[in-house]
Design a protein around this nucleic acid. Sequence first.
DNA 1: CTATGGCACGGATT
DNA 2: AATCCGTGCCATAG
Length: 477
Amino acid sequence: MIIQSQRTTIRPMTTAHLAQTMTLMSLTADELRQKIEGELANNPALELVEERRCATCRRTLDAGGICPVCSRPEGILHEEPVVFISPREDFYTTRSATTSEELSDEEITADIEDLPTFVLRQIAPDLDPDDRPIAAHILTGLDEDGLLRIPLLEIARYHHVPISRIEKVLTLIQRAEPVGVGSSSPQEALLVQLSALSETQPTPPLASKAIQEGMDLMSRHQYAELGRLLNISTNQAKEIAYFISENLNPFPGRAHWGDIHQSAEPIQDVYHLPDIIISFLNNSAEPTLVIEIVAPLAGKLRVNPMFRSALAEAPSDKTEQWKGDIERASLLIKCIQQRNHTIVRLMQDLAVIQREFFLHGDACLEPITRASLAKALDVHESTISRAVSGKAVQLPSGRIIPLAKLFDRSLHIRTVLRQIIDQEKKPLTDTQLAKRLKEKGYPVARRTVAKYRSMEGILPAHLRQPVQLAQLTPQAR
DNA sequence: CTATGGCACGGATT
DNA sequence: AATCCGTGCCATAG
């Protein structure tokens, strides 16, 4: 709609405009910042001017010079969620400070998503610079499960160093998130995780023996055999197997494996900075939601008026180029405005629809589709897709989740499912679970229950322990 | 015989 | 057009 109104003004650039709006839409605030910075450096027509900000909360003041949050009487904000755009350059400064410290030079640059980079960043401070090539060698040799299939000896030969030095580096890597990465086998990964875990919480004393000697028995669920091997009862053997599958992950490279406590979540969180921040304005039972859309840069972009007026006196061979600069600048600005506008509207609607979710968590997530929202906002579906993908939102609790999670169709059911299982006295079978869910108003097929269960990392009924798991004999090690 | 996971199909979603 | 998701059917383990 808005695009069309501008089509007349920038006629020759319609396609470029559309294309750029599309690309900008799918960019993270952080990515957009980089793009703008690049453009600022290259394009003399573009300039960034200071903007007045609120003295207390540093948010950008609106046209009337009023802070959108602080300066207003609270009563006015009571009805609707507040949505506004706000620069949070402090995020970027802290981030670029840490990244530049840790990965001083070469190879690793942008790609946060890949595992080798992720690990290398963590170990960089403790890593002897001389050992960098070794670490790089190991990390690039990881398979998709995060395991190292290359023999250490081979690496040692390649670098002409004693194997002990390789081991030293490897130890460092294995202690990084995801813990156990770089191990040569699932067993080794489990052992590393076990010893890491034992520093913070009690672990079953025989777990390591079970992993070392009874791995194949466990994977075949032959608990009686396992019990005999460890000189304990079948039930105790089951407990140990249960502990291992609940808390450890034989394939550290695979992100999901259902432990909410340590490895899985932080990884997701580390991946991105928030693009949107949600908080409460007041602490009442019915708090007002404050939704900040993170602006890529503090200040306001505009076409430099000096540059524009200088155009008349430009040397003849430069006028074309200068015109182009000005056009590029104004195009960029328009596209950014459009992007912001869409995101603001998107969040306004989401704030209303998902209010309960922001307040009370996963169980209250309203299952909506991007398509339905697109209709409500009267934009094309793909626009919503672009706006949503890759972005992250910070909840009032401080958790950072992908924006796409607000469009999860089954999260609420999975949450209820987990609640049922948490409260169960005896392990319920999938069929029984399906029945319970139906009673609660979530009709799902038995097969689907199984899928949700595994998504949540919950074991099948016959492996869940009805008895006291917490009372595992806490012996000295 | 029951509980569960794998494969694959069709419809919805992106 | 490509992908994701819920579900049914079937093989397998216990």
